[in-house]
Design a binder for these strands. Sequence first.
DNA 1: AAAAACAAAAGTGTCGACACATTTAAAAAT
DNA 2: ATTTTTAAATGTGTCGACACTTTTGTTTTT
Lengths: 229, 229
Amino acid sequence: MQNQSTKNSADTLNITLTDRLFDSLQRAIVEGEIPQGSKISEPELARQHGVSRGSLREAIARLEARKLVERKPNLGARVVTLSYEQLIEIFQLREALEGMSARLAAQNMTEMEIEELQALLQQHGDQIAEQHGQAYFQKQGDLDFHYRIVQGSKNKQLIALLCNDLYQLLRMYRYQFGMRSKRSQQAYEEHHYLINAITARDAEMAELLMRQHIRSSRRNVEAVFLEQL
Amino acid sequence: MQNQSTKNSADTLNITLTDRLFDSLQRAIVEGEIPQGSKISEPELARQHGVSRGSLREAIARLEARKLVERKPNLGARVVTLSYEQLIEIFQLREALEGMSARLAAQNMTEMEIEELQALLQQHGDQIAEQHGQAYFQKQGDLDFHYRIVQGSKNKQLIALLCNDLYQLLRMYRYQFGMRSKRSQQAYEEHHYLINAITARDAEMAELLMRQHIRSSRRNVEAVFLEQL
DNA sequence: AAAAACAAAAGTGTCGACACATTTAAAAAT
DNA sequence: ATTTTTAAATGTGTCGACACTTTTGTTTTT
């Protein structure tokens, strides 16, 4: 058996260069540091990060899989361009997926997890009372809440899809569109209804409420967009 | 301007080596030619296909994104191992996603597309009458039908997710588990109800029927699995 | 002067080689 | 003989180089 200091602690937590690159680029893209629609020059980016093109390419391939960049053969990769239409499509996806998540969460969350979720919501309530709806914490809080419910579904496919893929795109929209929410108070209340349904193990109701919650969130976005014109 | 024979016809239909490799490997995995759970040796596979490891690696990365292989740093890639639990999870995903697809299809399909769908279903009916439910055509037909409805949703996110990612996994299950369906007749009828709802542009009903259709398909799978024990 | 043809520059696709990690096999120690 | 150490072999991660494509800039042609 090998020495413990060289051997990796438990499982394979071996972080590869490509992993770090991917994380770094994903953050940069989501936060708009690399602007949407901009072309990615492999030689330049590789030099900036001090890595070879090969490693960079693998990172880009992963970004492509998450739909954060689009690549065309021989033409190179571009950061995706966000659009109102796509955002609406994503809301439709979320309505379906998170609706199902809520249904499954009502069935599969442990009592412990439900209690923790209630505690989290309580915390959000305090924050709202204090600082009268500061946008950032609200949005982060909303995402936390949804995140936990997805985890609670215990469906690995759902979890991977929503938490890894879709939420990054959503975060990108939030960063880049601003997306001020005038409905933190209402969202908070809707979360309350949802948690009640889950506590009561009412799967049907949980799905219904989640879908309504996301739909009204979408309508809010639609309204914001319309008034921007 | 360049000569037309060397220049690619219209857009960029430039097929890269990695593309072909990916297609080839995906087919091999889905059809079980490369058995599930087996380790993928990069040098060996690269040699077999007469390509460099770099290209192969990019292809594997794509397979990983589609969850057809799992890769662990420094340990290499393995073809996924199919499990009953995962199959059930996939059915839950489908229920959510295809339910939404049907809803949107009822709203967004053109009259033309609906007619084509009806024609397709008619064709399936003929086949069933003729050859008293041959498994293969049934399954393929079922997939065709679902495929078109997803397309009809006009939601690009949904389409990419279902048609590119999820259906490949499903096909893999069908190839490798056999998955004899004793309900081709019933599935055919359920498709009929669905098409009626779509023709009537009843989105709510379309979603409901699709979800029920997939749920009963799932129950069939569950039953088959139980009797195998 | 505008369009076409050509040449140079930059970029992407593919490859082979090396460094490091893991696995396998052999040798040494108990 | 069993276990531990050591060494060889295999495999993955990363790199730099070359071939071919696309883009850019210049020259030629009308």
